[in-house]
Nucleic acid binder design. Structure first.
Lengths: 190, 190
DNA sequence: ATTCGACATGTAGTTTTGTACACGTCATAG
DNA sequence: CTATGACGTGTACAAAACTACATGTCGAAT
């Protein structure tokens, strides 16, 4: 359901085509809310049917630029203030960490190092983006300020994860060598 | 696809029924990988058909306790070492933050305060859990040590988010009152 | 005795998300 | 002039995930 509001929110800033929006999802949003073009085009159609957005102009290759309607703007605002935040996250990386005990300590060490590097690099990317915004490269429209906040969250989140992955590497592996598997002589070995 | 491995990983630790697993997802995993019972029962069926798990024993109310097979154990391990980590996250809270500029500054202040409180409380919950583990309340099996690492990630993640929400409250709202809406005189107002 | 709540598993139907396929346009570099 | 790559929109199909419904058992308290 959130894609609907994501689209509405983006269109509240400025009109855009399905293609434009797809680019934004790929380049800027994939870290917090991934979406592929078939879903985007589909949702734009529904939004238009519902009168929350409307075709603003048509361009060259069948390009259709959508603009938000007053009803659509009211609807995003309603969402922002009235709908409770869904706090469920889906983090495969953390799910995996539950099962680290099944890994060979050496493999785990490598894994954690590459995870740390990944998160650190992601944080650096966000940081750069933030610096550009702070330099004023993108102007100082309200929507730019909001994005700066989102980026700040990204920086903090990925730094936290990087710190965690580094900390995890310092946790000593099981002392008596890398023993077998699921709880010694378990049901799996029958 | 990850649910499959989540189940396999949990069963690698100890045999369990669909009901048991559902409880674990509700109580411990909903923050990092939510799953409801229909999905779990369905996946258990497929896993059993594939020979990765097997019914270990049957209990009172049609209860079926599954245990992982050697093939299943090999499969989780393969996943852990060979499959690349999917780093995409889906965080509605951050998606919303992109659109904060559409909110009334007062509503936003309230929102951020409640977000901060939520994250702080979540972090505290994880911290408590971690303390219990460190006290040895859950023994010191390898799987418990892994879970301790996951919890550590939870603590760091939610503290980071709480810090962010507090920081965001200090960012000054647009100076010249709370003006209109989408970029002055925008397309939406036509 | 009976009722209530936890235990326990499943199906049906829908929504959401993703992959693959399919088609056509415009600009530009060779 | 023609091939390539970015532009641009869409459909078909499959997989994943959620809601609601359906059914029945067992233990404990009233």
């Amino acid at each position: 359901m959130s894609l609907r509001y994501a689209l509405l929110g983006l269109l509240a800033d400025s009109p855009a085509s399905g293609y434009d929006l797809t680019q934004r999802f790929e380049k800027q949003l994939q870290m917090i809310w991934p979406a592929k073009h078939p879903q985007i085009y589909g949702e734009l159609g529904k939004l238009a049917d519902a009168g929350l957005i409307a075709v603003d102009s048509e361009g060259p290759r069948g390009r259709k630029v959508y603009a938000i309607t007053p009803e659509g703007l009211a609807e995003v605002r309603r969402w922002l203030t009235e709908e409770p935040v869904d706090h469920t996250a889906r983090l495969e990386a953390l799910l995996r960490s539950l099962f680290y005990w099944l890994m060979d300590p050496e493999d785990l060490g490598e894994h954690l190092a590459s995870e740390a590097a990944f998160y650190r690099a992601a944080a650096a990317g966000f940081r750069e983006y933030a610096a550009a915004k702070d330099r004023g490269d993108y102007g100082d429209a309200p929507s730019v300020k909001s994005m700066r906040m989102t980026i700040e969250a990204g920086i903090r989140l990925y730094e936290a994860l990087a710190d965690w992955a580094e900390w995890a590497q310092t946790v000593p592996p099981p002392g008596p060598a890398a023993e077998g598997a699921a709880s010694e002589g378990s049901e799996a070995e029958r």
